[in-house]
Lab assay of single mutants.
Amino acid sequence: RGFLEKAAVKKMAKAIMADPNKADEVYKKWADKGYTLTQMSNFLKSKTAGKYDRVYNGYVIHLD
């Protein structure tokens, strides 16, 4: 289950990176699912340092 969630989160993160207008909708879905910042950090780990920082930081702001 965790692997599928991670894959889904990364897919949506890539969608945000391609079209930032989708961010609020995606952040709301993640918040509704109760994803914590720790979970998001783990889901968005990448071999490329900083690749998903913008998405993660946007989610931090959304939760605030």
Rank of each mutant, 00 (worst) to 15 (best):
L37W: 03
M17E: 04
Y59Q: 00
V60P: 01
A23L: 03
V9E: 01
D19F: 06
D64W: 11
D64C: 15
D32W: 07
W30H: 00
A23Q: 05
E25P: 04
D53T: 07
K51H: 06
W30N: 00
K14W: 09
A7I: 14
L37G: 04
I61C: 14
D24S: 10
K22R: 10
N57Y: 14
N21P: 05
A13I: 03
K22I: 15
S41F: 13
L44R: 00
K29I: 15
N21F: 09
D32Q: 13
K29V: 14
K29E: 13
S46T: 08
R54Y: 13
T48P: 15
Y27I: 02
A7V: 13
N57Q: 14
G34P: 08
G34T: 03
V55I: 11
D24V: 09
K10H: 06
E25F: 09
E25I: 07
L44K: 00
S46L: 05
A13C: 05
A15F: 06
Y56A: 01
Y35T: 01
K47G: 13
K47M: 07
A31W: 06
A18M: 11
N42M: 12
K47I: 06
N42V: 11
L4T: 12
H62L: 04
N42F: 12
V60T: 06
M17V: 06
I61Y: 09
E5A: 09
K28Q: 12
G50L: 05
A7N: 10
V60N: 04
L44M: 02
R54P: 10
A7G: 07
A7L: 15
G58N: 04
D24Y: 12
T38N: 10
R1Y: 07
I16H: 00
G34C: 08
K10E: 07
A49E: 12
K6Q: 11
K14C: 12
K28P: 03
L63S: 02
T48W: 09
K28H: 10
K29A: 14
Y59W: 03
D32H: 10
R54N: 13
K14T: 07
G34K: 06
G58M: 04
Y56H: 03
F3L: 10
T38H: 11
Y35G: 01
M17R: 04
W30S: 00
K29F: 13
F43E: 02
D24M: 10
G2V: 12
K33G: 04
L4S: 14
K10C: 11
K10T: 08
V60S: 08
D64Q: 15
D53I: 05
M12Y: 05
Y52M: 04
T36P: 01
T38V: 12
D64V: 13
A7D: 08
L4G: 12
V9S: 01
L37I: 09
Y27S: 01
L4W: 14
L37H: 04
G58V: 02
S46G: 08
T48F: 08
V60W: 06
V26C: 07
K45A: 09
Y27T: 01
G58H: 03
M17F: 05
L63M: 06
K33N: 09
T38K: 11
A49G: 09
N42I: 11
Y56G: 02
M40C: 03
W30P: 00
A23D: 03
V55M: 02
Q39W: 04
V55P: 02
K22Q: 09
A13F: 03
S46M: 05
N42G: 11
E25L: 07
V26A: 06
G50E: 05
T36V: 03
S46C: 12
A8W: 14
Y56K: 04
P20A: 07
M12C: 14
Y52G: 02
I61R: 15
K47L: 05
A13D: 00
K47V: 07
Y52H: 02
E5G: 09
F3S: 13
Q39H: 07
K6S: 11
A15D: 07
A18D: 12
K22W: 05
M17H: 04
V9H: 01
Q39D: 12
R54W: 14
K45D: 08
F43S: 02
V60H: 08
D32C: 15
K11F: 08
S46W: 06
Q39S: 04
P20E: 07
V9Y: 02
A23E: 04
R1I: 14
E25V: 09
A49S: 11
A49R: 11
A31K: 09
H62K: 04
P20I: 08
W30R: 00
D53F: 06
V60K: 14
A15L: 13
Y27E: 00
V55G: 01
N57G: 07
Y52A: 02
G58C: 05
A13P: 00
L63P: 01
K45Y: 09
A13G: 02
K47P: 09
G2D: 15
V55D: 00
E5Q: 08
K51W: 08
V26W: 03
K33H: 09
H62S: 05
E25C: 15
L4A: 12
E5V: 10
L4Y: 13
N42S: 10
A31P: 00
Y52N: 02
Y59R: 00
K29D: 11
A31D: 05
S46D: 15
D32K: 13
V55Q: 02
F43K: 02
E25K: 08
F43A: 05
T48Q: 10
D24C: 15
D53G: 04
S46P: 05
A49K: 13
D24L: 12
T48V: 13
Y59L: 01
L37T: 08
F3C: 15
V9Q: 01
K28C: 08
W30E: 00
K33E: 08
